[in-house]
Write a protein that binds this DNA or RNA. Sequence first.
DNA 1: ACTGTGTGCGCG
DNA 2: AAAGCGCGCACACAGT
Length: 597
Amino acid sequence: MTERSSQTPMTAASGGWPGGHLVASARREGASARQGGPADDSEVTVTEVDRTGAAFGERIIPAAGLPGFVRAAEQGHPRWAWRSSRDWYPPLLAEGVRIERCRDLALCGVIVRGSATTESTPLHGTAAPWPTAAHPPGGEGYDDALFRLDESRSGSPDVDPLSELSAQLAAVAAVEDRRAADRLRLLLAAESAGSLVAVEMRHAGLPWRADVHDRVLTRVLGRRHPLGGRPERMERLVSVIRRELDAPMLNPDSPVELVRALRRAGLSVSSARARELRGERHPVIPVLLEYKKLARLHAANGWAWLDAWVHDGRFRPDYIPGGVVTGRWATSGGGALQLPKQVRAAVVADPEWKLIVADAAQLEPRILTGLARDERMAAAGRGRDLYDGLVDAGVVDSREHAKVGMLAAMYGGTTGDGARVLPRLARAFPHAMNLVSEAAEAGERGDAVSTLLGRTSPTPSEQWFEEQRVASLPGATPEQERRARSRTRDWGRFTRNFVVQGTAAEWALCWMAELRIRLARMTVDAPGRAAPPFDRSPHLVYFLHDEVVVHAPAALADAAADAVRASARSAGRLLFGDFPVEFPLSVTVVDSYDQAG
DNA sequence: ACTGTGTGCGCG
DNA sequence: AAAGCGCGCACACAGT
């Protein structure tokens, strides 16, 4: 390791960065700095630390000077450490400054404290010092009413990022199993890279043509009602439904009213669900199903949605890394995880730019393959669709059965065709099937399970354990026993799925982490319309579990598509090393999102 | 008028 | 009788 002295702070600029960090902390916590980012009028402390977290250089700079400082420091490729990218990164991007690497202490703090990998360390199981978007005050462990009276209960704003970093580094360093520690380090790096991607995607925005969206809505729903009421075609369908059911005042949006009217018309339905209605024969049913489809589009992604969420030709949802316990992202605002296929035509690349749409084929079963190191399943998926591979191997008789069977294995299905082919899958792929059933058994016992890199599932609530205990006593009623057994299986399905879904989320993070770096290295001379600093480079604009969309200058579109593929190979190697499981992508270069797939 | 819960359905 | 995992959001409806 290179020796560094406090006489030469910020030596990162002189090249090389052997595992240390530049820690950014708000020096004076002004009103707007309460969330941990810098306030306009405050000062920022940037501390250079070594790989153990020990400080050896410090600069104090006005917050307004931070972007310039960061831009210069990036020449040395440092790893920044800060309370949270959510708070610190947007002001940098607003000044056109990107960073390469960081450690998001809030997100990493949640992982490190919860991971079974750090079980023997003092940090394990302690309360994280700061709330995250995924664990806001008011969530578990916080009293919302008290929070409003006393902000100090929202965590500890005064916890020093430096000591938090040291505590995290020490906890990982103390892990005896070196390989487990390395996997956890990879997870922390990937989670942090994700925190940057999330902020960058919001900054860049998903290109969205409001005029195209409007045309889709008018074509499907009919002309827009001037006051926001039902558009023409929907209104006409309501009239037909009311006439057919002889219910002139019926509001088809009300499940209660609808069920009542349907029963009066002689149908024996117990809910207003489309799935149930599909099984009934009555002239009103097709009209009703059509209405439901239109009503859904109108309510979820209609003109009101457009007005609320699309501005200046971009859709900017709030991405929340780690927002799901499994490690998947959540989003808030605009329902970004549920963009219906119907409106994807409105996602259009800027002039002279292209969209690269890529999704990982059968990601979760392939993740299971790698987790279990199931050679036969890897072979079945090599060079082809995994489900077709199961058919070719003679395990199941159709692609559809392969698919529902794998889903049943990973989700804990017990009914239908999926459950029926499970025994065949178990015989053909004992390693893979054992892995998921052991995860389920652990959950049923109340034990935690972990992903490949070490994200650990929560344990069931006290109430769950209490219910189990009561049900096992001699005096338990059959109803108590039945209910407890049901809760047991519920939790088993959760842990069964956790290992697969969570490891798939890790693969996706590694994929994006590599991709954003590769894309950032590619530039064209002429700036486009994208917000700086993305106007000259391909960049991520959307992410959905196993799918990404990249917005790229047309001249770089093919290179960007190659980068997407190379990054997927890299992610596979990072997680599974030499084990020969493949993660094929479908990649298309298109002008609009609906042309993909 | 506001808040919390249930229903239903979109996505992977 | 329950029913395959994980989400977010709009609306209806009940409670205050």
